[in-house]
């Protein structure tokens, strides 16, 4: 059964059963491997993408339920044209192993889109579903504040 998806502005036809989670459509079918698998049960946030701008756990959204345009980490910026939030991540040297960071960045990007200057408490609230086993949290917090500043100045 063929489903049409719009991902990072490009239309894809995918031939997979309806119940395959978006995560696995992206990774194993479309070849967008920036979005990561961590738990499969909505407990880590590594698989976070945007659907119509809203941060969602792609491991929990079945292919047939994708309700809008999908944006992945590859869609918000590239190494040569990084989004402000990605630039802030580099400037703060956030990543350690880096495996959770696509999900962290996508979560942070949606927070900043809704709330251009989040407080520490608002950051806590928005980011607590995103696990980092390496413990990069303080630099994530600093990068979100920096990105907020950069986006305001831009």
């Amino acid at each position: 059964m063929s489903t049409t998806l719009r991902i990072n502005g490009i239309t894809h036809q995918v031939d997979l059963p309806d119940d395959v989670p978006l995560l696995w459509v992206l990774r194993d079918e479309v070849g967008l491997t920036g979005t990561k698998f961590g738990c499969g049960v909505a407990a880590c946030g590594a698989c976070t993408v945007h659907i119509d701008g809203e941060a969602v756990r792609s491991c929990q959204v079945a292919l047939s339920d994708v309700w809008g345009d999908v944006t992945t980490i590859e869609g918000i910026g590239t190494p040569d044209t990084m989004a402000a939030v990605q630039q802030a991540w580099v400037a703060n040297q956030v990543a350690q192993c880096g495996y959770c960071q696509s999900g962290q960045i996508m979560q942070a990007a949606s927070l900043l889109a809704e709330n251009p200057s989040p407080s520490d408490a608002e950051i806590d609230e928005a980011m607590q579903g995103n696990l980092c086993r390496c413990g990069t949290y303080p630099r994530i917090r600093a990068a979100i504040h920096d990105a907020a500043k950069m986006m305001k100045e831009a």
């Binding site: 491997t33 920036g34 991540w89 880096g98």
Partner: peptide
């Protein structure tokens, strides 16, 4: 000194290749 890490841009843009990201022609899962 604090030297910028050479893997930082790749790890901030989803382009760093982890084990699960290896993709080869004809690959199965």
């Amino acid at each position: 000194k604090d030297v910028p890490r050479i893997d930082m841009v790749a790890k901030s843009t989803g382009t760093a290749e982890f084990g699960v990201d290896v993709r080869l022609p004809g690959m199965k899962f």
